[in-house]
Design a protein around this nucleic acid. Sequence first.
DNA 1: CCTAAATATGCCTTGACACGTATATGCTCT
DNA 2: AGAGCATATACGTGTCAAGGCATATTTAGG
Lengths: 133, 133
Amino acid sequence: MMYIKSMESVFEIIAEPNRRAILSLLVSSQQSVGEIESQLRMTQPTVSKHLRVLREAGFVESLVDAQRRLYRLKPEPFQEVDAWLDQFRRFWSDRVDALERHLDRMERSSPTKNKTEKVRRGSNRERDKGEKK
Amino acid sequence: MMYIKSMESVFEIIAEPNRRAILSLLVSSQQSVGEIESQLRMTQPTVSKHLRVLREAGFVESLVDAQRRLYRLKPEPFQEVDAWLDQFRRFWSDRVDALERHLDRMERSSPTKNKTEKVRRGSNRERDKGEKK
DNA sequence: CCTAAATATGCCTTGACACGTATATGCTCT
DNA sequence: AGAGCATATACGTGTCAAGGCATATTTAGG
């Protein structure tokens, strides 16, 4: 009997560095387990286990190709993360600005993870602190 | 001696449900530890520990207010998550569509997660199956 | 200075998860 | 059917984070 414990949320799934590496690999194209294994220098069981977690969480799906399984991305969980981020978007930019950056990112669509330096932008939220009870 | 082990990535930070709850709380306004404690039904040490993790990861900053510490959000780590998501955006919609949905979300700013059905887009990599090495 | 309030930290236990090694399952071809 | 490749699963182990509980620290005010 195999117990699939918890791993409820998408956030726990992407918390694992190797899983993020697998996901990034699959952006370029679908890959077999062996291809992932060789590119990421992980053992085959490790790859398979992570793929299982990713599949059960809906991040990937597998296509049978003879003895191989080709894995490819599925969009829904990413949307879920994106939806969660929404509530915080107002903190790093106002509406129009966010739109522009969003567009900008999609125009370029760079495959590498861009570690961009961001300019801090003060939040526009005012708060009263002083009251002591 | 207190070891601050790893907790390197922002993804591990937001993997913890209580931390996400704290972050969501702080969207509306900055809060003291006690306020967070009572609203989220966590013990005070638990709240403090999570806040420490969040602070060291740059998700929040604290303002001293007498005996209280007021915590409020900082944008950078959220941007980092957003940047990571970028590489996957092509998977859930084309450019215009993404823009529309992005706008739509910001207009309504609905807190619920939208579970949209998407049309898959085939990868451009053909599988070479036959060759054995 | 002493006390109370608010928050931070230390120690300990527990449980989850990631990995390695070994093995099982599945598929193909001869 | 049997061999060989590709992938999945089982089991044991080590590590580390999260929380409970106790206590330290900080600040305000009498």
